[in-house]
Design a protein around this nucleic acid. Structure first.
Lengths: 119, 119
DNA sequence: CAGTATCCACCTAGATACTG
DNA sequence: CAGTATCTAGGTGGATACTG
């Protein structure tokens, strides 16, 4: 069974691989969530606080989608109060250079923009 | 004046740079458009054909946004029939490693998925 | 704590037709 | 050739309230 969304054809060769990746980490939250998971295992509410403005509904939805894509792992502990920890799967790990490239470029650009704003 | 969209606050430090980058190259088409412009200057209709399923309306809109973000250049030739060429600006050029990272990861993943599908 | 359930505004993107 | 105009469906993401 393929993990590719059925509705997509990825027939725009040779741009496809770029589109395929953006499909998985694009959107408003997924890239940032993966970024936060790069170095730590994080619990639901902690992640929620780190992302600041995300709603619980959206966070749950994004996490389900990342899990379905095989990029993150969800571990539930049978405790009271409940504890659920999210971490990168090996596939998610493999995205590290990509996420870091996005981060590096974004940092440079944000610095450049605030520089310009100061002039 | 800042090129940052006014409605965004980028206050989710330290995830912001990732979000900022994804804001610019995310969505369904921008990353792929930049990818196609990586090695060539391309005309409107050519780009349209290469992307396959994009509508003229969407292509025009994405190109305007990329131009407004300072990532591409638009050069109009005073000819009949009209000719408009799009190419990467220096800022867009600086995205090259990012786009290539997206491409490399996507290629690996697509290969992996088709491998699995064959089993 | 870690979610669901509901409802809703907005935006993205497609279809189609038209034009300087 | 390189767009614009109009209309619309569907998806994305937010607000709020509730729960095992």
């Amino acid at each position: 069974m393929s993990l590719l969304p059925k509705r997509k054809r990825y027939d725009c060769a040779p741009g496809c691989p770029v589109e395929a990746t953006l499909d998985l980490i694009g959107g408003k939250w997924k890239g940032v969530i993966l970024y936060h998971l790069l170095d730590e295992t994080i619990r639901f509410n902690t992640l929620s606080r780190r992302l600041g403005s995300i709603t619980q509904r959206m966070l749950a939805k994004q996490l389900r989608e990342l899990e379905a894509a095989g990029l993150i792992r969800r571990v539930v502990f049978a405790e009271v109060p409940p504890r659920v920890e999210y971490s990168l799967s090996p596939d998610g790990e493999s995205l590290r250079p990509v996420i870091l490239a996005l981060k590096a470029w974004g940092e440079t650009r944000l610095a450049m923009l605030s520089q310009q704003a100061a002039e």
